[in-house]
Amino acid sequence: MKALLRSSVAVLTLGAMTSVAAADGQVVVYHWFEYIPQELVDKFTAETGIDVVMDTYDSNEAMLASLKAGGMGTYDVSVPGDYMVKIMASEGLLDTIAEGELANKGNISALWADPSFDPGRQHSIPYQWGSTSFAVNRDVYSGDISSTSILFNPPAELQGKINVLDSQGEVMAMAALHMGIPQCSTDREQLKALNDMLQSAKQGWASFNSDTAKEVLVSGDAAAGMIYDGFSAKAREEGANVEYAFPKEGYIAWMDNVVLLKDAPNRENALKFMDFLLVPENAAALTNWTRYGAGVEGVAPLLDEALRALPEANPTADAGKTVFIEACEQDVQAVYDTIWTNLKK
């Protein structure tokens, strides 16, 4: 309720503000619902004297649609996921951050300084990140889980007890890693093989569930399942003896990013806001609150003890590399849509 009130006030303020034109001392943030602690916002205002006006959305696509339908020029920054940064850049919605404009740009951890979705970090800075892999109930299966074979060619103990996410992007990316082919392959033999592989893998699957990916592991309906890192940790907290896998073939990463929007009414303040989020102390405060990962150097010593020791946040030595889900071209996507329909028909 409080949050609801807060966002309604924000929207009201927003309306008032646009009519007075860009007053000094404000930054207008278009953000996910409930994705920043109020203390951090207050701290920014206390340090800089800049008021934060916030409006919220609940999906990348909704944010894109609203910006394209007249929202440009209203907001200074927004927080798209990895693939959406690329889409927004290609649609010309993002401003470029010139060299030297961000004092703390050097704080971005090396791992995230040059991501595929925004080479050279021209438009964005890291906000939070995490991974998608799978978790296995160790009471049911005690063998090696460091391979995607657990999902696509499961051992006898896990046959028929596997849940996969009901999400085409995630299943296809994981399958591509398993087969060692590119995500948006155009090679016909590879695509046919992918289709066949998924058909046979499905025989070992119990269900397709995203929302209940955690719950099916806790209840025992599934003994292994594709899952987001945060969900896996929560499943363990709720009593399931699950271990999060870091497959050697690789696994999926996701990252939300703060982007500088084109025609930002308070560009200077937006840059100050981004600089603020790149201070390790602030990034740590954010991560301690969201329980995801920060993409900023020097955060580790400032994290909660429990968060630092979290198995999900500490890849094993033989873990494969992480990949982002790729947004395929239209004609390629059509083939993947057909494969997905074949899988679920």
Binding site: D166, Q168, G169, W205, F208, N209, Y336, D337, W340, T341
Partner: peptide, 24 residues
Amino acid sequence: PDLLGGAKNFMIGSLIEEQFKGNA
């Protein structure tokens, strides 16, 4: 179909839903 059938097979309803809310 989604909750009890494990969403393993499309039904008419889920097929249509996928076209509007899913990747397709």
